[in-house]
Amino acid sequence: MTFPPDDPWGAPAPAPTGPPSPADPLPPLIPVGPSPAAGPPAPPPRIPADPTIYVGPVIVQIAEIEVTSTVVRTPAGDFPLAGTQWQVNDFWVTQRRTPTWAKVAGVAGVCFTGGLSLLLFLVKESVPQGTMQVTVTSGPRQYVARIPATDERDVITVNQQVNYVRSLAAL
């Protein structure tokens, strides 16, 4: 946009009538695409490789594996639930460490007990940590999901879910 030299207030010049010259600034950019307020687009529906398979609501979800009444959905692809084989493996490690309360009491009590409270650092507790590995196999295809487990209840829950899916696969 150019201003006539005799206009001190910067009034806009008349619009050009011919093609833009190389000295003219570029026209303003107009954003193209979805507006930021619209949010992310919805993902396309997942369709199994076999179009005769009915895809219903998710009944059980084990980590990233979703199970409907007829289909097992994995990030690697979908396959029929009937005839699938399920396996669960536990991988546990038990660590021995000083609990937080013993550390705090040991440091705080040094001033009052003359160092005897440092014996609290000898207190140890066992902390189980591990992962569970759930493997689903259907013919030549296989998918493995790894699930962190911090408690015995996690192991029981995953085993119950897998046993339920096994009963669905046997129908």
Rank of each mutant, 00 (worst) to 15 (best):
T98H: 04
G10I: 04
S138E: 05
R97M: 14
R96K: 13
R146E: 13
Q87N: 14
V134R: 02
P22D: 10
C111D: 09
V104C: 14
P128V: 10
R141G: 09
Q85P: 00
P75C: 06
T84W: 01
A11S: 12
W92P: 11
N163Q: 14
P19S: 06
V55K: 10
D151P: 00
I65G: 02
V127E: 13
P44Q: 09
T137F: 01
Q95D: 15
P12F: 05
P8D: 05
Y143A: 03
G18M: 03
E125G: 10
P40R: 15
G33Q: 11
Y164T: 15
G56T: 11
V72S: 03
L116D: 07
D78I: 05
P27Y: 00
S126P: 04
Y143P: 00
T157Q: 12
P22L: 07
L122M: 13
P57Y: 04
A149S: 11
A170K: 06
G10P: 03
I47L: 11
D6A: 11
A149T: 01
R146W: 15
V155C: 10
P12A: 12
W101V: 08
S126D: 14
N89H: 08
A105I: 15
D50G: 06
F121C: 11
Q133K: 07
S167P: 02
D78A: 11
T52I: 04
P28A: 12
M1C: 04
T68G: 07
V32P: 00
L122K: 11
A108C: 06
I30A: 15
L171W: 03
A11Q: 11
W92M: 15
V162M: 03
V134F: 02
P28H: 00
A23N: 12
P5G: 13
G106P: 07
P16G: 08
Y54E: 15
S117N: 10
P51K: 07
S117Y: 01
G130E: 09
P45H: 01
S21T: 12
P43R: 05
T70N: 09
A169Y: 00
W86M: 04
D7Q: 06
P27D: 14
R141H: 14
V67E: 05
A76D: 15
S21M: 13
P41L: 12
S126K: 13
G139P: 02
R146N: 14
D24I: 00
W9R: 14
P45A: 13
A105L: 11
T135N: 00
P34L: 13
P99G: 07
L168W: 01
Q85F: 09
K124G: 04
I53T: 15
